[in-house]
């Protein structure tokens, strides 16, 4: 489509403005993590790696990071198994209530986190506690899995839709039993979709705070929880800033990979 010179300039300006609103604050966080001034005076008075060293040596940060990784891996594992199974069921079979199941799977991503959080909190305390399972890592993982399933489900479903069933029929036709077909055809073609869905699920879990607040017991502190707790403590502010900067860099990687994997598909490997 041909646009006039003014229209083009306006659209470019709007794009630049929109992106600036999102990314300039992040950039400031990143720069401030090297800011020598403890109160983040602007412009920075000097460059320092002091805060990075402090964050690295903080046991609170390290423990919280490890907790977040564990929770993320757990939720991602559950999401991969359940999301894939549901996607296969919905795409390959027709059964009563199929559309309802599809909707119910996707819904948690849209539900307000606070609602999910309170609901899970109530459920866990009334159902699990009598059996001696208190709020803790397990409940955080389950809570995160409720919305992590969606990303895997969506990725796998989209891939299954695109592939159709005929390649699997072709495999069977050529003499492969169901297991061989899955090993040589279905799984290799799903692999990048699973990876993309898994990375997104991990990223979702990693920065989740609302559901986490309601499902984590006293002993469990994920990185977002730690940041939120220390945000308003003046002497911790530089360290929080470093953690935020590190998280920005860390979350770019999985999102970038996920986007490449789900966009490229099987042919662009």
């Amino acid at each position: 489509m041909n646009l006039s010179r003014t229209a083009r300039a306006t659209l470019w300006a709007a794009l630049a403005g929109g992106l600036a609103v999102i990314y300039v604050p992040l950039l400031v966080v990143l720069l401030n993590s090297f800011n020598a001034d403890r109160t983040f005076g602007w412009p920075p008075t000097g460059f320092t790696l002091r805060w990075w060293a402090a964050a690295w040596n903080s046991t609170g940060v390290r423990d919280a990071l490890w907790t977040s990784v564990q929770a993320g891996l757990g939720a991602t594992a559950i999401a991969l198994v359940l999301g894939t199974m549901v996607a296969f069921a919905v795409q390959r079979y027709s059964f009563f209530g199929r559309d309802a199941v599809s909707l119910l799977i996707i819904l948690p991503i849209a539900l307000p986190g606070i609602v999910t959080g309170i609901a899970l909190n109530n459920a866990f305390r009334t159902v699990l506690e009598p059996f001696g399972v208190g709020l803790g890592m397990f409940t955080v993982v389950v809570g995160h899995a409720t919305f992590c399933v969606v990303t895997v489900y969506n990725n796998v479903l989209a891939r299954l839709r695109r592939l159709g069933a005929s390649v699997e029929e072709a495999s069977a036709d050529l003499g492969a039993d169901a297991f061989t077909t899955f090993r040589l055809v279905t799984f290799p073609m799903m692999r990048s979709a699973l990876l993309a869905g898994g990375l997104l699920a991990f990223a979702l879990s990693f920065d989740e705070i609302i559901v986490t607040t309601f499902t984590a017991g006293a002993g469990v502190k994920t990185l977002p929880l730690w940041i939120f707790e220390n945000l308003f403590r003046p002497n911790q502010a530089p360290v929080v800033n470093v953690v935020a900067a590190a998280l920005i860099v860390l979350s770019v990687v999985p999102i970038y990979l996920a986007q490449r994997l789900s966009g490229g598909g099987a042919s662009a490997r």
Partner: peptide
């Protein structure tokens, strides 16, 4: 053996991999 209407070639294998598939399994 069947030649499918949409061919149903395995997109993640090259031509030789596709043709060898039946013998491989």
């Amino acid at each position: 053996n069947t030649v499918f209407q949409d061919y149903a070639l395995f997109p993640h294998m090259d031509v030789l991999g596709n043709v060898e598939y039946g013998l491989r399994v």
